[in-house]
Design a protein around this nucleic acid. Sequence first.
DNA 1: CCACTGCGTTAAGAACGCATCAAGATCACG
DNA 2: CGTGATCTTGATGCGTTCTTAACGCAGTGG
Lengths: 224, 224
Amino acid sequence: MTRVLVIDDEVPILRALKINLTARKYDVSTAADGASGLAAMARERPDVLILDLGLPDMDGTDVIRGVRGWSSTPIIVLSAWGQESQKVAALDAGADDYVTKPFGMDELLARLRAAVRRASPAPDEPVIATGEFTVDLADKRVTRAGADVRLTPTEWQLLEVLARNADRLVTQRQLLSEVWGPGYQNEANYLRVYMASLRRKLEPDPSAPRYLLTEPGMGYRFRP
Amino acid sequence: MTRVLVIDDEVPILRALKINLTARKYDVSTAADGASGLAAMARERPDVLILDLGLPDMDGTDVIRGVRGWSSTPIIVLSAWGQESQKVAALDAGADDYVTKPFGMDELLARLRAAVRRASPAPDEPVIATGEFTVDLADKRVTRAGADVRLTPTEWQLLEVLARNADRLVTQRQLLSEVWGPGYQNEANYLRVYMASLRRKLEPDPSAPRYLLTEPGMGYRFRP
DNA sequence: CCACTGCGTTAAGAACGCATCAAGATCACG
DNA sequence: CGTGATCTTGATGCGTTCTTAACGCAGTGG
């Protein structure tokens, strides 16, 4: 399901968007100001961002630049009628499109479809390499000794979270919540089962892991 | 120098665009109706097309479709104020952007820059070849053993998405969303039916696919 | 020295995903 | 308006993956 993040401080617009987009099978989350919007972008990695330029705490173009610094997620800007220069600045800051308020829902939906369609050739994501194997986030592919390693979906999700946080300690709660969902934070068993499976497929000596490390009592760490 | 083709039947607009764009170092050519516009597209292969929807001889969306049939050149549409449904139709037909008349030249220039920038990441439309068949993205044609393979529209769309992401895992969500639309992301059945059909037409041994691979639980991958 | 806790390992049934087939609905075309 | 192609939808069988529970082991603290 396509995930959309809406950053807007006007409650009626937020509600209207949420209702209409949800009805069209989009997965909608919201933020009411620029700061929490940027945080939500990093946390949720939506497929599209809909951004109102008139935010209380930040200039809209700064939000765009904040996002463009690390992500090429399509951005559709909402702006009040007549603010020509603002729109131009937004587009030049890296926005993909804009819609003038008041806008028709059909138009927004069409632009949304167009933005998602254009973005589909996925942006570049890094390849993380260890002495034993490599993890290609974009291709969703793991290679070891020249050959692809077959991972099950759950195995891959787990490895992906660890790889995206390479060298950082990832807590059990975070892993469980990101791979299985927020309701599974006590099922530490799952982690053991799947870490064992990953080690069996990736570590030279699964019983003495060199790359997928356990931090007792805390969580796990991926050391490339 | 960026080449722009303007298709518009209103002389004042045509003149204004020509002057302004030329001053900005664009290489501008013009056409006054849909038919000669399509001819000019094929002949001159501009980098961007600016298209007025209100042409005397053809419906604007038909012009767009005529172009999209063989080219992914960015299209910016000009339309009169208030013609919501027309804009939506234009965007869905494959237009990249639109500007409402009367428009400010600054705005048009910003959208022009944005369109060119988006397109610049090499819209390479190569011919992708495997040991068994070749896929020509530009001609929308698949050849196997020297002969054209007849694909239905849906089959082609599916193959095209996979081919554009060659070697990359494409998730079911992405495939469903790009081929059938954002509302179909749970209809994984469609994928199975059409992948089976593609394999029947393209794979030497459809039950042991070599090029159209299944990644269980995740999606599909096209390996040229 | 012994219970307790957290981690790794294994195994088995349940649940799920995929391929395939077939038939009804719908569309495009003459 | 009829016909053939294409798309949608449901059902079936099979293999894989997930979930769950049990057990062993090491470290820790009583």
